[in-house]
């Protein structure tokens, strides 16, 4: 799979998902406001995992910036 195909696939998924979008009102956000529903529900764990995988695998980026700041890779 090339990057173009991946972009096309994700655009397709995004387009389909957007079709089902509801305009969620502020008073309907109780569930969305829960800690486990946050995009990064545990930044400390994410940061540790990113560091581990960045130093043991050749990929970077995705969830956030792809920098390293470490001599481990």
């Amino acid at each position: 799979m090339t990057l173009r195909r991946a972009i096309a696939l994700l655009l397709l998924i995004g387009g389909v998902a957007m079709q089902g979008c509801a305009n969620v009102k502020p008073w309907e956000r109780e569930t969305l406001a829960e800690p486990a529903m946050q995009l990064d529900s545990n930044p400390t764990v994410s940061s540790c995992d990113d560091h581990i995988y960045f130093s043991r695998e050749a990929s970077k980026g995705g969830r956030g910036f792809g920098g390293g700041g470490c001599g481990c890779n």
Binding site: I7, G14, A17, C21, A22, L32, L39, K60, G61
Partner: peptide
């Protein structure tokens, strides 16, 4: 994007 009161999606593109 908030899809509905129970679903949330995120798409990121990053270049290094």
């Amino acid at each position: 994007q908030v899809i509905n009161p129970r679903t949330l999606m995120q798409w990121n593109f990053s270049q290094t």
